[in-house]
Design a binder for these strands. Structure first.
Length: 422
RNA sequence: CGGGCCGUAGUGUAACGGUAGCACGAGACGUUUGGGACGUUUUAGUCCGAGUUCAAAUCUCGGCGGCCCGACCA
């Protein structure tokens, strides 16, 4: 993409009402726009990052047999009344709205979905009837609306946000547990692929009423709102909310070997048991013809929160520094101003070669001074910067700077393409 | 939801109760051109509503909005 065509602008300073590093940098670099507290729009560069994250999650979900769906944001109160979660006492994150005129079921009321256990369990009643239909796994990327008492930390805790939610439908506890572990493994692959692998720990957390524990995926980061106790060797952690002697004994963890750190909950998987299937009548006939409730599990990742976490961790004083897997573009091709028309021509040709080779490149063809272009480049944080200017020699080599390491190399065209083929 | 702090051009910041100023941005012209260059010039603001006062960005009350701490977070 030609940067002269990009409508977003960078800023020198972040708005004073943004304190969170992720929001400050993402706004300064023009990746997102704050609509109101806890509500952010994604602009072209930000959407590219978000879609990279989404695609990585999608691939891993498909890999373990997930089938992608897209449920509705508008929710029928009947379903939620049946599960007991329609009232504001039972669920205080509701945004509710109302239909025009007509007195529908709940007096014309509708809810904006804050999760989809109910909707999907109700939907599955029409598709799950026999043990032969199970197990099955469905997931989606969908906007969730939660009326948080306090939105905070930029895009890490928003009132409107995208979530990948996967739901499993199994016959037996063993079948459920087997899949649960597959998801846990897939989650670790996802966090590794987006660059958070080394800092992300599977963490024991409260299991609610259906199970002893649930598992969170916590990424070590000072901006996190959770406190966890981690064992680096075993690569496990315990959330402060269940950090008791009893739990430590149960998990065979030695308190002395645990380290207290702040972390961001980037994912959460938990057993639902038969809570929703029983409430909503989601049953199947087993091999001998008996009716049994389906065993469910729920598995969430917020792509926006993952993006915010990556921004928190992969950034420095100058700006963002994306891992290549989620960077909006791989290469930032910078053409410096010159009276020599050959510079512009050479940059344009290189841009075309990158495009032809399928390399994602942002071509800074704007009529700006070098300093501004470099500052913008550092702020945007694309993995590699290639500069074409008068200093370039006629040896066919390009100056390539690695944003993360600061390392500068002179490479030929082939080497540049290889470097970015990862 | 409890507590605290705060709302001034697009952004960031000044102004004792007394002329709303500066920087960046954006526009124009010229000189520049490998790390946010310079000159001339133009543009644009006191969140909303009451009250006190000769006079309110400034004081008081209400509303709306923002941030932080806490509680909460299937």
């Amino acid at each position: 993409m030609r940067q002269s065509q990009l409508f977003t602008k960078t800023r020198r300073e972040a708005p004073k009402d943004e304190v969170a590093k992720n929001a400050q940098l993402l706004i300064r670099a023009g990746y997102i726009h704050k609509e109101m507290a806890g509500v952010y729009s994604f602009l072209p560069l930000g959407l590219r990052v978000l879609n990279k994250v989404i695609q990585i999650i999608r691939e891993e979900m498909n890999e373990i047999g997930g089938q992608e769906v897209h449920l509705t944001a508008l929710q029928d109160p009947i379903t939620w009344q049946t599960s007991g979660r329609w009232s504001d006492e039972a669920n205080d994150t509701w945004f509710k709205t109302r239909l025009h005129g007509a007195e529908l079921h709940g007096g014309g009321e509708l809810g904006l979905a804050n999760t989809h256990e109910e909707a999907l369990a109700a939907l599955m009643r029409g598709h799950i009837t026999s043990y032969k239909d199970l197990p099955l796994y469905a997931y989606q990327f969908q906007t969730k609306f939660r009326n948080e008492r306090r939105a905070k930390s930029g895009i890490l805790r928003a009132r409107e946000f995208l979530m990948k939610d996967l739901y499993s439908f199994s016959r037996t506890e063993e079948e459920f547990r087997d899949f649960y572990e597959q998801v846990a493994a897939a989650y670790l692959r996802i966090f590794k692929r987006v660059g958070l692998g080394g800092k992300t720990y599977r963490t024991f957390a409260s299991g609610g009423s259906f199970s002893k524990y649930s598992d969170e995926f916590q990424t070590i980061c000072p901006a996190g709102e959770d406190i966890i106790y981690l064992n680096k060797e075993k690569r496990v952690a315990v959330n402060k909310e269940v950090y008791t002697e009893e739990v430590l004994a149960d998990l065979k963890l030695d308190r002395k070997k645990l380290k207290e750190v702040k972390a961001i909950e980037v994912g959460n998987i938990f057993p639902l048991g038969t809570k929703y299937s029983e409430a909503l009548g989601l049953t199947y006939r087993d091999e001998v013809g008996d009716s049994r409730p389906v065993i469910m599990g729920s598995y969430g990742i917020g792509p926006g929160r993952v993006m915010g976490t990556v921004a928190e961790i992969f950034s420095d004083e100058a700006g963002l520094s994306w891992p290549q897997s989620v960077a909006p573009f791989t290469i930032h091709l910078i053409e410096l101003p010159s009276k020599d028309a050959a510079i512009k021509q050479r940059a344009g040709e290189l841009y075309q070669k990158f495009c032809d080779a399928g390399v994602e490149v942002l071509y800074d063809d704007r009529d700006l001074r070098a300093g501004e272009k470099f500052a913008d480049s550092d702020l945007l944080g694309l993995p590699y910067r290639v500069v074409i200017g008068e200093k370039i020699e006629a040896d066919g080599l390009y100056e390539v700077k690695n944003r993360a390491s600061g390392e500068v190399n002179r490479l030929n065209e082939v080497a540049v393409l290889e470097l970015t083929a990862k």
